[in-house]
Amino acid sequence: MIQQDQLLQVTNLNIIFPSPKGDVHAVKDISFSLGKEKIGLVGESGSGKSVTGRAILRLLPPYAKVSAEEISFKGQDLLSFSEKELRCIRGKEISMVMQDPKYSLNPVRTVGQQISEAYIVHSKVSKSVAREQTLKMLTAVRIRNPEQVYKLYPHEVSGGMGQRIMIAMMLIPEPSLLIADEPTSALDVTVQLQVLAILDDLVTQRGMGLIFISHDLELVASFCDRVIIMYGGRIMEVINAADLHNSTHPYTRGLLNCLPRIEGRNERLSTLVRDDAWLDADFWHSNDSDGIII
């Protein structure tokens, strides 16, 4: 992978959720960097991938303890930013598409109002200019009748349409980094591919960085440039998507082996093996890991 001009650098990110039963260490010492590329963040439920995405936007609930050596975006240290400075980054520079448009759109506002709001927040323009831009953006996500959709309420659109609206809303201020948090998990399989194609096109056209959070290894492998495999709040491996099937890491191998294949259907699928030793930081250092080079 050619390292283009760097967008995001995360070094030793830790996220802890205090709870009465003891602290939950959701993310432990993870580091990665990102250029104008598509990077996949893969892991099981609870591996800390969504939380990582939210921590970059500094949008975790206030009780979450986030610490890191560095979270910098285009050379600016996001950790030192005030709430007001962060608002100029959110949407404008880094945006996020969430899982289910049924919940992530405001039920009492029209689609058009919500998309143009995203535009108006960052560029102080009149409503009619924002409307024009919104209609253009709706067309860009391949909605054929933008004028009509503009006036609809979220409950009046389908899941696939909703997610396209969400993408339009998040891309309208032209951010340089998009975090897509399982953007297709709530959709039908056929619609999934359409939405992915749109996302892929727009991200490539605009030369943006993309963090694609998913639990679907195959999907990520076909869609992204690089893949980060997470387990138990740690990064297990960072690997080029093309090399994924040649991975030697036991966890990645385990994940790959769990996937059913059309050929060889008579075999029993293997169970995922999880080794607690992987969660130990020293394990990787003592092995002189070649997995965590980022």
């Binding site: 608002r87 100029c88 959110r90 945006s95 992530s104 039920p107 009492v108 927040v121």
Partner: peptide, 24 residues
């Protein structure tokens, strides 16, 4: 979650509270 959406968009906190949440 639409509250998170509004925050991701960079909407000011008072607008998130009085515009989005209170609207509902």
């Amino acid at each position: 979650e639409y509250i998170l959406t509004a925050r991701v968009k960079g909407v000011a906190e008072w607008k998130v509270i009085w515009g989005h949440a209170f609207g509902n």
